[in-house]
């Protein structure tokens, strides 16, 4: 079975590295994006199995990236996990309750939390079926 591809987008270099390292250990292929624009481009081109988005990012914020992904025919079915702090998350809920968000990782979270969420979505959940 081919390795599942996860796109991780975060503007903090160290976080990005930690996420990449942690997910690779767990057996996933990881591609990274340092900002929202890059994340959108990579999603369209590579169509990963899962996208993990930080909310506060330069150029395009994670929330807008998620909305654009859900609008596009090519990427609308890719599950997106939002990685954020509680304050920002609630703000997002209050501004738009319609945009579909497939999962949250509330900061601070541990590597185990990350593995558990990814497993939940890719292996146990609706998206568990191989492409």
């Amino acid at each position: 079975m081919a390795k599942k591809i996860i796109l991780v987008s975060d503007d903090v270099e160290e976080t990005l590295e930690l996420l990449k390292y942690s997910l690779e250990i767990a057996g996933y292929s990881v591609i990274t994006a340092k900002n929202g624009e890059e994340a959108l481009k990579q999603s369209q081109e590579l169509r990963p199995d899962l996208i993990i988005l930080d909310i506060v990012m330069p150029k395009i914020d994670g929330y807008t990236v998620n909305s654009k992904l859900k609008e596009s025919e090519k990427t609308k079915d890719i599950p997106v996990v939002i990685s954020t702090t509680r304050g920002l998350m609630s703000k997002m809920f209050s501004t738009d309750g319609k945009t579909k968000i497939d999962g949250f990782l509330e900061k601070p979270y541990t590597v185990e939390d990350l593995w558990s969420k990814v497993k939940e979505i890719l292996e146990d959940g609706l998206w568990s079926k191989d492409k």
Partner: peptide
Amino acid sequence: MKDTWIIE
């Protein structure tokens, strides 16, 4: 703690 926690 950054080796085990994603904080930022």
